[in-house]
Design a protein around this nucleic acid. Sequence first.
DNA 1: GTCTATATAAGGATAGAC
DNA 2: GTCTATCCTTATATAGAC
Lengths: 208, 208
Amino acid sequence: MNASVHFSTKERLLTAAEDLFAQFGFAGTSLRQVTTRADVNIAAVNYHFGSKENLVNEVFRRRLDELSQKRLDALGKAQAQADPALEAVLAAFIEPALALTLDRQGGGSAFVRVLARAYAEKNERLRKFLSDNYGHVLREFAKAIGAHAPDLGKEELYWRLDFIAGALTYAMADFGLIKRPGNVSEKTHCQRSAQALIRFAAAGLRAP
Amino acid sequence: MNASVHFSTKERLLTAAEDLFAQFGFAGTSLRQVTTRADVNIAAVNYHFGSKENLVNEVFRRRLDELSQKRLDALGKAQAQADPALEAVLAAFIEPALALTLDRQGGGSAFVRVLARAYAEKNERLRKFLSDNYGHVLREFAKAIGAHAPDLGKEELYWRLDFIAGALTYAMADFGLIKRPGNVSEKTHCQRSAQALIRFAAAGLRAP
DNA sequence: GTCTATATAAGGATAGAC
DNA sequence: GTCTATCCTTATATAGAC
């Protein structure tokens, strides 16, 4: 028995929903599309998740629990250094997120676009769910980055963090001009863009 | 007759659609919501725009024609200087966009969030419409900014432009941590965030 | 845990009178 | 140019059999 080929109905629903949310958005995706793609009955969504809203939340939970843990672990390791560089703190935030875009097998590559959708949503209930469950991660990083930019006022610091979050989201979701050249592997492309973002963000944070 | 209080059905539909698209997204907004808010009959959308898709396009056209012109005018003025600074080029791109967020009277403040929605959309038809009609503006700015960063490879330059576009989009749409303090006027807040973004972007572009 | 069948509401679009 | 009325499709959700 090869465990990797068995997926529960619940997992299949989450993966199908993630793919479709990335492409069509939350409102633009119907539960019928989701169940058709997952090859399960239409009633399965309600049985396993209770409602469409809860299905959306669980799509986030499946990825963000792991992503948050990886980010905090990386931050802990960076801060365990005698003299941690700003770049190391930024890398702890950025690299685990960009690594998701490489996760074709596990399906993380669709999730980064779902995350970008979430930013654009003004949906209060979704925002509350994300803030309640993952807000503490952002606050940890704000503190760590702020320690590297002691001359910035709190307001200026928060502005720059917003800019970095926007740049990361946008870069991850592949909205922009950059197309991967044919002679560069996806992994290399991703690592290069992570390094480019870290350089850019660090320079931006060090501006007076 | 006070002209400022008369709005055509078409204009009212565009404004209502813009507000609702900002809040609920394109798929999340029904034509019934739009016509109710505009206080016109449900059949008016089809009469004036033909379809929901075309209504979406016209919401963009109404603002982007003017925004693009303002950006190109500002770029022309910046480049007419003997020795234009990188900051002046960035300001030509950023300030007209952020000025929209102040445009409560004309309704531009909702549009910036509609723009952010558009970035998250993978809708090919919408992307084609925007690229066909406004892509030349982005290419002008890419050229102008690239002239200020001659040491960057083309790939690295494009990455950084992507990052700036992401930072601007999310800063404009007010998705982040920054809440305007009570003792700062909206106009001041907006100008400060524009200046913060210009500083951040310029420093990021100058990184080696 | 999965199915069929269905309740109930809302969606986009249009025909035709005024 | 605006209205009412309606067609047809699709949506979420659930009841109840297996």
